[in-house]
């Protein structure tokens, strides 16, 4: 298993021009998979997730020097990843609305179009169920269910109170459960 340096030491290395690139590469290696999956759950398609991930790390490269470390690096990265994913989805909605005049292809269709999609498998059904949730509930559900992120971390990332997050996750989980029972 790969050993990663602490965020503090990586930040210190990044601020040193001589070790900046090496530190950045280490940050990318440390967080690339977690961020990728966080983004992929939101945008569904691999190519889109790759594009968003690139944008996230480019923003990290540009902004890390001015990062004040008031929140953890992990929280900051997730926040950028979340914002970039939401921006990407909004841009896609705008594009599709402009092209198809309302006949938009939603993420459910994109899941079904996945070459590995198997309607009989419960994991795929879960993905379809998640797509029925409103955007914010979907985000909260993904962070809590798949990343098992504590509510206080989620609160830092999303800027929502822990109470509101708990209620939102509860509603989302109920909706998903009902969808799975019916299907």
């Amino acid at each position: 298993m790969e050993q990663y340096q602490s965020d503090e030491s990586l930040l210190a290395l990044f601020r040193n021009p001589g070790t900046k690139e090496a530190a950045f590469t280490a940050i990318v290696n440390k967080y690339k998979e977690r961020l990728y999956w966080h983004i992929r759950r939101m945008v569904v398609i691999h190519e889109d997730a790759d594009d968003v991930l690139q944008n996230v790390f480019i923003k990290v490269w540009k902004g890390l020097e001015h990062f004040r470390a008031e929140s953890g690096l992990y929280t900051w990265l997730y926040r950028i990843g979340t914002n970039e994913s939401i921006t990407h989805l909004q841009n896609q909605k705008k594009k599709k609305a402009a092209i198809s005049f309302g006949n938009e292809v939603d993420l459910t269709d994109q899941i079904r179009a996945d070459p590995y999609f198997d309607a009989a498998k419960i994991e795929w059904k879960l993905q379809l169920a998640i797509q029925q949730l409103p955007e914010q509930q979907r985000l909260i559900f993904n962070l809590r269910y798949f990343d098992e992120m504590p509510y206080n971390k989620m609160s830092e990332i999303l800027g929502v109170t822990e109470g509101a997050l708990k209620a939102s996750y509860h509603h989302a989980a109920k909706k998903v459960e009902n969808y799975l029972r019916k299907s």
Binding site: R40, R41, D114, P115, Y116, D118, E123, Y145, E177
Partner: peptide, 16 residues
Amino acid sequence: DNTPVLDGISRIMPYH
């Protein structure tokens, strides 16, 4: 969060 169906699903993503 009493969600028996959900709790029985693996958290591994099916995406490739």
